[in-house]
Write a protein that binds this DNA or RNA. Structure first.
Length: 468
RNA sequence: GCGCCUCUAGCUCAACGGCAGAGCAAUGGACUCUUAAUCCACAGGUUUCGGGUUCGAAUCCCGAGGGGCGCACCA
């Protein structure tokens, strides 16, 4: 089929409703516009035809009269989903529907595939995720969710730019996978003959930029973790990481809650959010409570990193958690927190003072050498953000890496590897610095009221279809 | 990776051991103000795939594949 290379489009559906809302039933505006979009519905009635045109802004009715419309017969034979460009006068029909009275029109592209039931849409998850392009037309909620995600990204960038952050990009192909506890994807560079790992976090690179003198940096981009897929996990997901020189973790908690409140205001116009039928608030002033305090409350007795191992082991065993031989009191406390208090945190809260044992990149706590100045933000029972006062002493960092290496040798396949380049970077001097990581997909889920992470990822990771 | 559930026409769904059906879409037609238009007609299927049980299987059983939800891992 011969279709044009361009169309001189000059009007959007939503703008027409705004501009011509005043037209009375049967009134003609005398204004000619050129609209474009897909024909979503078509009703013919002898020498009349009504179509529903949908563009990125909304919908507007097309009103065709055989005496007026160019090639009226062909117009009545359009398929649902066809892209058309239409030139015509803006009118309101006798029955009160604002319309473009079709004059010249042309097919811009045909739809040869069906867009699903025009009332029920597409329900099949496989089809929706593998062919999001069809899902976007068939299910308006999909368009809203993905649009909200985009608005979240936009809001974060604008807010950080406004606070003098510099957006940077760091390598995704890494010789050593580090910056988090996770299993990596492995790939290979032919010319270098070298194994590379897709990044699991940009953390160490970003801190090296702070060493380099950029006092406020952020990166928002994809990280890759070779782990299970679930309604809350996609193997590639979007992480915001940011670092601020001269700050500690208390300052960073304040930034975190302010950023969330601003994003909610920018995207939804309120900090009061309904997630899966239940309310929570992104208003600032989130409680800041230590992990030990929350775990103690949950188990009904005082527990901390100073609690004897046999007691912690007993408490974990009571909750069907098996204690691994390599675990110390710190890991046990963290496991106890996860097994008890974590899932019940519905309203945003900062959990602070994580054990040093599970925080190899965080700076030791100024009041307790077994703890770190770290926080995690929880909301609706899930982790949303993680941050800390950054460990900036190269000797201490080397010792922490060595501890990790011992764990790796003992069979922990998520323990970090020693990054000598990073130690060397710290030897050039990292000022006191605080860092933050936010799982953007998780945040987008809250903003878009999505129960599954796939609803806020345009093309989620799926199993490739294997030929039998 | 393990467990439970699921897969029927292009889409949404019936039929649940006894002739595979409907609505929408598509195709042909009627209709000068429709709103998921309506009406008439026509067409559409190795019931995801491969085995098995049975006189008879979409339906019961086994295996494979895709998907959903839990668990585990994690953000």
């Amino acid at each position: 089929m011969n279709t044009p290379y361009s169309f001189d489009h000059d009007a959007y559906a939503a703008a027409l409703h705004e501009r011509f809302g005043h037209l009375t039933d049967g009134e003609e505006s005398g204004v000619t516009v050129k609209v474009a979009g897909r024909v979503m519905l078509l009703r013919t009635q002898g020498k009349l035809a009504f179509g529903t045109l949908r563009d990125s802004s909304g919908e507007i009715q097309l009103f065709a009269l055989s005496a007026v419309a160019h090639e009226f017969e062909a117009f009545t034979k359009l398929h649902l989903g066809d892209w058309v460009g239409v030139e015509g006068e803006v009118v309101r029909t006798k029955r009160g529907e604002l319309s473009v009275k079709v004059g010249f029109w042309q097919v811009l592209a045909e739809a040869r595939q069906n867009f699903g039931d025009k009332w029920a849409g597409i329900a099949d998850f496989d089809l929706r995720y593998r062919h999001r392009e069809a899902d976007l037309w068939a299910n308006p909620e999909t368009r809203i969710s993905l649009t909200r995600r985009s608005q979240v990204l936009q809001s974060i960038r604008r807010n950080l730019w406004d606070q003098d952050f510099m957006e940077v990009e760091t390598p995704m192909l890494n010789g050593i996978p580090t910056g988090a506890a996770a299993r990596p994807f492995v790939t290979h560079h032919n010319a270098l003959g070298a194994e590379f790992f897709l990044r699991i976090a940009p953390e160490l690179w970003l801190k090296r930029l702070v060493v380099g003198g950029y006092e406020r940096v952020f990166e928002m981009g994809r990280v890759f973790r070779n782990e299970g897929i679930s309604p809350r996990h996609n193997p590639e997901f979007t992480m915001l990481e940011l670092y601020v020189a001269y700050w500690d973790y208390e300052n960073m908690m304040t930034l975190t809650e302010e950023l969330c409140a601003k994003v909610a205001m920018d995207v939804l116009g309120t900090t009061e959010i309904t997630y899966q039928g239940r309310e929570f608030s992104f208003k600032t002033g989130w409680p800041r409570r230590s992990m030990a305090e929350l775990a103690s409350e949950a188990v009904g007795e005082d527990v901390s990193v100073h609690t004897p191992m046999d007691r912690l082991t007993k408490l974990l065993n009571d909750r069907d958690v098996k204690v691994h031989a390599s675990w110390g009191a710190g890991r046990c406390l963290s496991e106890l927190f996860e097994a008890t208090a974590e899932a019940d945190i519905w309203n945003p809260m900062f959990v602070t003072e994580h054990p040093l044992e599970i925080s190899p990149l965080a700076r030791g706590h100024r009041r307790d050498p077994l703890l770190t100045e770290r926080f995690e933000a929880f909301a609706t029972g899930r982790e949303l953000a993680n941050g800390f006062s950054e460990l900036n002493d190269p000797d201490v960092q080397r010792a922490r890496f060595e501890d990790q290496a011992r764990l790796a040798a003992a069979g922990d396949d998520e323990a970090m590897q020693i990054d000598h380049d990073y130690i060397k970077a710290l030897e050039w001097g990292l000022p006191p610095t605080a860092g933050l990581g936010i799982g953007i997909d998780r945040l987008a889920m809250l903003i878009a009221d999505a129960s599954n992470i796939r609803e806020v990822i345009a093309f989620p990771t799926l199993k490739p279809i294997r030929e039998p």
